[in-house]
Amino acid sequence: MRMFGLVGLLLALVIAGVVAKKQMASVAAPALPSVPGAAAPASGEAPADERTQARQVQQQVKEALDAAAQARKMPDDN
């Protein structure tokens, strides 16, 4: 009985490995990651470098958090 369990476990592991390998091989990384709310560069414009993109994303996240905090402010109970 244990042998069937071990064989089944190994078979499942092999299948998962093959599927993961195919998935990783078929996924192509996009040149610019898509960020909701971010403006797409113009067709003739050169893509921004990674640091500039990281700063833009950080700024957008900060603005979104600030807006959410402002919307959730509760009146004082005093």
Rank of each mutant, 00 (worst) to 15 (best):
R2T: 08
M3N: 04
M3V: 09
M3A: 12
F4R: 07
G5P: 00
L6M: 14
L6D: 07
V7E: 04
V7A: 08
V7Q: 04
G8Q: 05
L9M: 10
L9S: 05
L10Y: 07
L10R: 12
L13S: 13
L13T: 14
V14W: 11
V14T: 05
V14R: 02
V14I: 15
I15D: 01
G17A: 13
G17Y: 01
G17K: 02
V18Q: 04
V19M: 04
A20I: 01
K22W: 08
K22V: 12
Q23D: 07
A25G: 02
S26W: 10
S26F: 13
V27L: 10
A28G: 05
A28V: 14
A28Q: 15
A28R: 15
A29I: 11
A29K: 04
A29R: 08
P30N: 05
P30Q: 04
P30M: 03
A31G: 02
L32R: 11
L32W: 05
L32M: 15
S34N: 13
S34V: 14
V35T: 07
V35Y: 03
P36D: 08
P36I: 07
G37I: 01
G37S: 06
A38N: 04
A38H: 10
A39R: 15
A40T: 09
A40Y: 02
P41C: 07
A42C: 04
S43R: 08
S43G: 03
S43Q: 11
S43A: 13
G44V: 03
G44D: 08
E45P: 00
E45A: 14
E45N: 02
E45S: 12
A46Y: 06
P47C: 04
P47E: 03
A48Y: 01
A48E: 07
A48R: 01
A48V: 05
A48N: 00
D49H: 06
D49C: 08
E50S: 12
R51H: 10
R51I: 13
T52S: 10
Q53S: 07
Q53H: 10
A54M: 06
R55P: 00
R55M: 13
R55G: 01
Q56W: 03
Q56K: 13
V57A: 02
Q58F: 08
Q58D: 14
V61L: 13
V61N: 10
K62R: 13
K62A: 14
E63M: 12
E63Y: 05
A64N: 11
L65S: 11
L65Q: 15
L65H: 09
D66T: 05
A67L: 09
A68M: 13
A68P: 00
A69Y: 02
A69E: 15
Q70W: 06
Q70L: 10
A71G: 01
A71K: 14
R72T: 10
R72P: 00
K73G: 00
M74V: 12
P75V: 09
D77S: 06
N78V: 14
N78D: 13
